[in-house]
Design a protein around this nucleic acid. Sequence first.
DNA 1: GCGACAG
DNA 2: ATCTTGTCGC
Length: 334
Amino acid sequence: MWLEIRLKPAEIVPCGTIFVGVHNTCPNGTIFVFYASPSPRSSWIDIISVIDSNQIVGLRKSRSSSSSSWTTRAQELLRRRLILEDDFTWKIPTTTTTTTTTTSSSLEDEAEDGKKLLMLRYVGGVDLSFSKDDPSMACAALVVLDLQADATLNVVYHDFTLTHLHIPYIPGFLAFREAPVLLDLLDKMKRDSNPFYPQVHAKLMVPFVGFGLACHLGVMADLPTIGIGKNLHHVDGLTQSGVRKLLEAKENCAEDLITLTGCSGRVWGAALRSTRGSLKPVFISVGHRISLDTAIKVVKLTCKYRVPEPIRQADIRSRSFLQKNQGVIKKECD
DNA sequence: GCGACAG
DNA sequence: ATCTTGTCGC
C-alpha cells in the first residue's frame, strides 16, 4: 500500500517523488519513506517509527561510523538482529575432491550432544531480470538446488513473480528495491510448507554490501544467507581494480581467495576466483546466521561456473520467464 | 568537498 | 540491470 506524493518544484529542490507506506521490508511499527530525486545521488530512503497515528519519530539516513557508506535507520534496526556466526543445525558436505565414495556418504551425522545433524542439501538462490521495453517491469525468481553427494546441483524448485518496481536502484539501497518481491516468494513457499523450503539445512544466496540485500533478506526471512556479487560495490576504500591487483600479486599462490579488508579495518567479505579459468572473481559476503569461512565453503560447493549455481539458475530462469511472459502481460493491459 | 557505488 | 556479434577453446 503506497501513498505517492508528487512534489511541485517550489516545494523542494530538486523536485522528485516521495513514497510513504507500509512495506514488507519494514520492521513492525514502522513506515517506509522513500524520496526519489531526479538525481539518484541525492535520493534517500528511510523507515520512520510510528508512536501513534499522529506522531512519528526518527528520520533520514545517518552516516555510519564504521565506514564511508551510508545506512538508513531501517538498516540499523535490522542490523541489531543480524547474526554473524554459524547458526544452523546442518553440516557442510566435504569438498568434492574428497568425496571418494565414502560408502555411507551419510545424509545424517551424530553431533557431540547426540543430536542428529542433517547434511546441507537444499540451497536457494534469487535474482531479478528486467524488461528492456519497460524498465520498471521485472521478473523475480527463487530457485532451490539439491546439493547431493554427487554434486549434480539439480533444480528442485523454482517460482517466479512478474512485478512492477516503483523504487529505483540506488547503490547501497538495493534491498529496498528488490527485497519485497523476494520475501513474497519465500513466504509463499513457506506457507505452502514446501519440503524444499531452504529453512533448516539450506541457504539463500543474494548479492550484498555492508548491510545489503543478503543481510536484509536473511533477517527478514530468518534464513541463513550469503551475499554474492558479480561486481564489487566500492565501500571503505575497496575498489575492483585494487582487488584485481591483489589477486594478480597472488597469481601463483594455491588459493585464489583474498579477504576484503577496508581502510577502516573492517572485513567486508572475500573475493574468490571460483573457476580455474576465470580471472574475474566473485565477491562473497556474510548475510545472516553464517560466518565468512562457512559462506566461502558453501560457495565453493555450488560453483560449477564462475557464478554460484543457485544465483546462475535464478538469473537464467528469471530472464527466460520474463521473455516468455511479458508479451502476455502487455496484451492483458490493452 | 567531491566522486566513487551491488542491480 | 539491459542491449548486441562474433570468437575462442574444451
